[in-house]
């Protein structure tokens, strides 16, 4: 359990002279489930984007399995570390286009069985595979986007307030799936959430305030 997977060393991020994050250091071990808390605007989301290589730190370094992210191929890294956006968007035409995209870009066969199983877990019927993206509700889109991120069995899930814009019912459905993934696939999770109950298995909570680490418990 104590194998370090992600390590941040004095990470900072600055935009146009404004320090968004400074001096953030922590280690996440394989299989750990970490939640980030703090007021909005504190830099949590930026921190997760840095780990997801959506942004690059302006100071310090982030290591993945002991190698600096700057030396890793971002495309290969993102195939293992899956970033999930707060307001996820679907693309192309149908639900299947979205669910098969991860396999398509890896030049692999689309695992329809896995897609159907995950869809069932988020209460999306099989007939939705051919449904047009534009005909889906907000909650359905978010659930399908979540299934899309799980299609390629990532090692790490980075969740940026994934349920904050959803109603109670959708929140529970996605929360349940996250917990099942933690249980069944031993996935490492770093999650920003205002709803601690969403992640029952959280082993750690890191608090970020005004761009600095306040607490790690």
């Amino acid at each position: 359990m104590s194998e370090p997977l992600i390590e941040l060393k004095n990470v900072g991020f600055e935009v146009d002279g404004t320090q968004i994050l400074q001096d953030i250091s922590f280690v996440v071990n394989k299989g750990e489930v970490v939640t980030f808390s703090g007021p909005s605007g504190s830099g949590k989301s930026t921190l997760l984007k840095l780990i997801g290589t959506i942004l690059t730190p302006t100071s310090g370094e982030i290591l993945y399995k002991g190698t600096n992210l700057k030396e890793l191929n971002p495309i290969e890294y993102r195939k293992e570390v899956s970033y999930f956006f707060q307001n996820a968007a679907l693309f192309d035409e149908t639900v299947e286009d979205n669910l098969s995209f991860p396999a398509h870009i890896r030049e692999k066969e689309f695992e329809k069985e896995r897609a159907l199983k995950l869809m069932e877990q988020v209460q999306i019927p099989e007939s939705y595979l051919t449904k047009k993206v534009k005909d889906l509700s907000g909650g359905e889109k978010q659930r399908i986007a979540f299934v899309r991120n799980l299609m390629y069995q990532p090692d790490v899930l980075l969740l940026d307030e994934v349920t904050s814009s959803l109603d109670q019912e959708n929140r529970e459905i996605i929360g349940k799936l996250i917990n099942e993934m933690i249980e069944e696939e031993k996935i490492t999770v770093l999650s920003i959430t205002h709803n601690q109950a969403e992640i029952e298995k959280a082993s750690r909570m890191i608090e970020i305030r005004a761009g600095k680490m306040e607490e790690d418990k």
């Binding site: 997801g52 899956s82 307001n87």
Partner: peptide, 20 residues
Amino acid sequence: RQQVLEKLALGADKKQASMS
């Protein structure tokens, strides 16, 4: 923009993310 970001986050390269 958001769709392109999603594709990149899923592991797409520049070309795969921009093709459409």
